[in-house]
């Protein structure tokens, strides 16, 4: 299955995605949860915590800044830019993160 959760801001996309991901995993699925938001915080709803959610953002930023290599295959992306969330869900941040040019 490839499920995309969409809707207006604040409607609860992130919360629904997290519950879906963990629920499917509990039923025996092998689940990858992809955070595609420019402000990625799916980690908070999955339960990996503040610091780990921020760490994934930083990892992704290193790619955008060029100080870290782009992963080639999607398996590598999930491996390098992901973390293990509760219920064996693998969380990966795949959005490009916008940062202002420093002044």
């Amino acid at each position: 299955m490839k499920i995309a959760v969409v809707g207006k801001g604040g409607a609860g996309k992130t919360t629904v995605s997290a519950v879906l991901a963990r629920g499917l995993s509990r039923r025996g699925g092998q689940v990858v949860a992809l955070d595609c938001d420019t402000n990625p915080n799916l980690g908070l709803s999955l339960g990996v915590g503040d610091l780990e959610t921020e760490r994934l953002v930083t990892l992704r930023e290193q790619v955008d800044e060029g100080s870290s290599e782009h992963a080639i295959t999607w398996a590598e992306i999930v491996e390098h830019y992901g973390t293990d969330a509760p219920d064996d869900v693998r969380l990966t941040v795949i959005t490009r993160i916008e940062n202002p040019e420093p002044g």
Binding site: T14, N39, N41, T53, N99, P100, E101, P102, G103
Partner: peptide, 20 residues
């Protein structure tokens, strides 16, 4: 909410932008 705060923190980094 915690999520809204996360957004806000990122947006506050605009203050350090060259054209901010």
């Amino acid at each position: 909410t915690v999520k809204s705060l996360h957004s806000a923190r990122r947006l506050l980094t605009l203050s350090s932008a060259a054209w901010g």
